[in-house]
């Protein structure tokens, strides 16, 4: 059984991410684990070792424990699989990374509310955690129903990774799947058509999916500015896409990811 780790803080983004993860765990055979990292004040240094340190850590944890417990309690009725969260003390990114490496999770989920400014997502993608994370990541920007998912593809080579990751996680689900190829152009000319892309990527990827007994329901090319395409894709419950850690902020590809209001599943290249 696959295992996913959901990072929780006492905020709206985490509340949305938790609800989304619960929904996902009911559609896919995946076990849900939660983690909260309590960061001590920047000036506070961890004292000593052994009993002294443990006592200090317990005191720090108490401050966040109550709010996280409330968050879990609120979701428990609709998500019986939800267990007690793991509570850690330390620097957020380091602790999460250590936890993922230690327990070999298959998927990491966290909430990050959809933002007009691309900087927030850009910083996240270039963070130490995301640079070193060994598994795919779902960034939950809004709470949506997962009825239909889509793969956004760019090239045949990248798509192989994307598809094997996607199939590993979702193959047994009965989700409707669409396959999308994006062509970027000036704003004001958004168009969607069933015709295949120029370099044949859609055809090739469609065939890969068909060979794995999961042919897409729809397969189309969407042309437009990143913000128009992002807006157009809002009806999907999850959009899976490949991304390089080196992606530039001004690239159309990154701008598209930033403008998608729905949750995105990032497959690292």
């Amino acid at each position: 059984m696959l295992r996913m780790l959901v990072h929780l803080d006492a905020d709206l983004a985490s509340s949305i991410a938790l609800r989304y993860a619960c929904q996902l765990s009911q559609l896919v055979d995946i076990k849900l684990h939660c983690v909260h990292v309590e960061e001590p004040d920047q000036d506070a240094h961890a004292p000593g070792t052994g009993w002294v340190r443990r006592t200090w850590e317990n005191t720090v944890l108490k401050t966040g424990e109550f709010e996280i417990a409330q968050l879990i309690r609120a979701e428990k009725s609709s998500c019986p699989k939800l267990g007690a969260p793991k509570m850690l003390v330390g620097e957020r990114e380091n602790e999460i990374l250590r936890e993922i490496q230690r327990e070999s999770y298959d998927l990491f989920v966290e909430g990050s509310l959809h933002s007009f400014a691309a900087k927030k997502l850009f910083d996240k993608i270039h963070s130490r955690l995301y640079r070193l994370i060994p598994c795919p990541v779902i960034i939950v920007k809004n709470l949506v129903n997962i009825e239909k998912v889509a793969l956004i593809v760019r090239s045949e080579i990248e798509s192989k990774n994307l598809i094997s990751m996607f199939l590993k996680m979702f193959k047994d689900s009965k989700l409707k799947l669409d396959l999308i190829y994006c062509e970027f152009q000036e704003p004001g000319k958004l168009s969607i058509n069933a015709k295949k892309d120029a370099d044949g990527t859609l055809n090739a990827v469609e065939q890969m999916l068909a060979e794995n007994q999961w042919p897409p329901e729809n397969c189309f090319t969407i042309q437009g500015a990143p913000e128009e395409i992002g807006d157009e894709l809002r009806d999907y419950g999850l959009l899976a896409c490949p991304i390089h850690h080196t992606v530039s902020k001004k690239s159309n590809w990154f701008q598209l990811l930033s403008h998608i209001p729905s949750p995105i599943l990032i497959c690292w290249q």
Partner: peptide, 10 residues
Amino acid sequence: AWIKLVETAS
């Protein structure tokens, strides 16, 4: 309902 964060300056 969707949520979108916008910086006051933008």
